[in-house]
Design a binder for these strands. Structure first.
Length: 262
DNA sequence: ATGCCGGGCGAAGCCCGA
């Protein structure tokens, strides 16, 4: 058996966050990392520094906004650079790959769902359209009957326990029923919200606004690992690493970590 | 409880994030 540590992290600019990212990688030595919000085109991503830490690095970058990547100590293949169900999407929000681990493996994706604010605008309808297409593709992946791990910033706060104060986000796109219902549909079709499957009581916040929110613990749980049942079966542990959120020049998100034994 | 932070772009002020 091989123990694998995975993480998903919205780093809010890979260039501004490079020192924090490299420090975190060196301390924790994760095997697979899904990053979101790189805010850089592929040519502007400092991938050599990451590859120097013995990672295979793939990305779908975009100038100024969005951008997703996967880091892996194991070989990556069968790479998909967008949602096959939404190839006309102009924003870099999805990358998927097969990870070969000792001639077995798992399928992973780095997911960055749209923010969707303000509601009652085309930004929110785009969020819903994107999520519907993600839903469609995620169902297709279930047919493969693989260890499937879809990690990312879903920009969805699934339930009341996932927010410090629901009154603060009542009008926010992350808390709208339309978006939350799509998330629930994905779970109803067979995916597991890994954090909530294993932690019934801890809120598990992964995001705190810049300013005083982190010190006051006014957070939300919007970053998630969605697992096929085969992946949940090999899941050993899942936890939020709040440490880098307290470092200098942090991202407003902190890593969500998952340990599996395959 | 809004962008007052923070980042990108591009060279001031606007777009974006949740």
């Amino acid at each position: 058996m091989t123990k694998i540590l995975l993480a998903t992290w919205n780093i809010n600019s890979i260039r501004a966050r490079l020192p924090v990212l490299l420090k975190w990688l060196e301390i924790n030595d994760p095997d697979i990392v899904m990053l979101q919000e790189l805010k850089a085109s592929d040519k502007d991503i400092p991938k050599e520094e990451i590859e120097n830490l013995k990672y295979n690095f793939i990305s779908k970058g975009q100038k100024a906004y969005n951008g997703v990547s996967i880091l892996s100590k194991y070989p990556l293949s069968d790479i998909t650079y967008n949602l096959p169900s939404y190839t006309e999407d102009s924003q870099a929000r999805y990358i998927e790959a097969w990870v070969n681990i000792n001639n077995r493996g798992l399928r992973v994706a780095s997911v960055y769902a749209p923010n969707g604010n303000p509601i009652n605008t085309e930004k929110f309808s785009y969020k819903i359209k994107w999520l519907e297409n993600f839903y469609k593709h995620s169902l297709k992946l279930l047919d493969y009957e693989e260890l499937t791990i879809l990690g990312g910033d879903y920009n969805i706060c699934p339930n009341d326990i996932d927010a410090a104060d629901v009154n603060l986000i009542a009008g926010d796109a992350i808390y709208q029923k339309q978006a939350r219902n799509i998330f629930k549909s994905i779970l109803n079709k067979g995916y597991n919200d890994a954090y909530r499957s294993l932690n019934l009581d801890d809120p598990g916040f992964t995001y705190w606004d810049y300013g005083r929110s982190f010190n006051n613990n006014i957070g939300v749980r919007i970053d998630h690992f969605l697992l096929s049942s085969y992946a949940l079966d090999v899941c050993e542990n899942i936890f939020v690493d709040k440490v880098p959120r307290a470092w200098e020049r942090p991202s407003d998100h902190t890593p969500l970590c998952l340990e599996i034994d395959v």
